[in-house]
Amino acid sequence: MVTHETSQDINDPPRHEHMEVVPRRSVLRFVPPLIVVFVGLALLQSVVLNPNFEWPLVGSYLFSTAILEGLATTLGLTAMCMLTGAVLGIIIAVMHRSEHWLVVGFAKVYIWFFRGTPILVQLIFWYNLAALFPNLSIGVPFGPSLFTVNTNTLITPFMAAFLGLSLNEGAYMAEIVRAGIGSVDTGQEEAARAIGMTRLRAMRRIVLPQAMPFIIPPTGNETIGMLKMTSLVSVISLSDLLYSAQTIYSRNFEVIPLLLVCCCWYLLLTSVLTVIQGRIERHYARGRHSATPQPGERT
């Protein structure tokens, strides 16, 4: 029976072990790798072997005192601004959910203003605050003042940089925290309030901890961005990594080698941060998919 035999053939399991696998071979398949290798070698030759890059000089400046001090400033500024920005972000995000329109309005205007103006302009503005307010005082509006300080003594370049970067970061972090809070089921807050928690305590104890898996990964991105953004403070003559390099090359005119020194450090630091961020993201991804919560999910 012909039909029977045919169906038999079809149902026979194919026996792979006896078949030779023949991959598709096209002469063109060598083209893309060849291009990559060619471009790579060309770049290598033009960068590494190009005497104008003065790699020996790069090496000698990489660990010089001025550069390392600048590096410390960059790192310190990044850490302080991210920390302050995160705290501000949480406060602004919580204000955004207030029942009072004035509080909500403040949060909205804050985010609108700091996201809507260039950070470079904000930095220069803080640096020149003394031009607007020669003295800063604490007291009653239109009333007596309790405490007055000369703006120029208070707003050092570091202070201006710190204020500018933190306040700006606060706005971006507020948006991240807001999205994080939004991804937690509203039933969580409702249940917390039903056992007698105030809105603020429910936020702190119940909602925010569960929003963290949504907040932490993008915060890693922000930290990497902040590290590079701190280089803007060179315009207000704060001796960060970039400004320290600029100071050196304004004396010896070795512009390119010193910029390379900066790039090496920025690349190294962003690489480290990227690895850390990858770890954190994997940690939270695991926590969300498996039924067994991870230790980090507790708090």
Binding site: D185, G187, Q188, E190, A191, A192, R193, A194, I195, G196, M197, T198, R199, L200, R201, I206, P209, Q210, P293, E297, R298, T299
Partner: peptide, 23 residues
């Protein structure tokens, strides 16, 4: 808000979707 929260503490509530604290 704090005073209302205290009165709410004396009333138990059970929800359709449980709303246990997931963490």
């Amino acid at each position: 808000d704090a005073e209302v929260a205290l009165t709410r503490a004396e009333i138990g509530m059970v929800f359709q979707r449980f709303n246990l604290f997931g963490h």
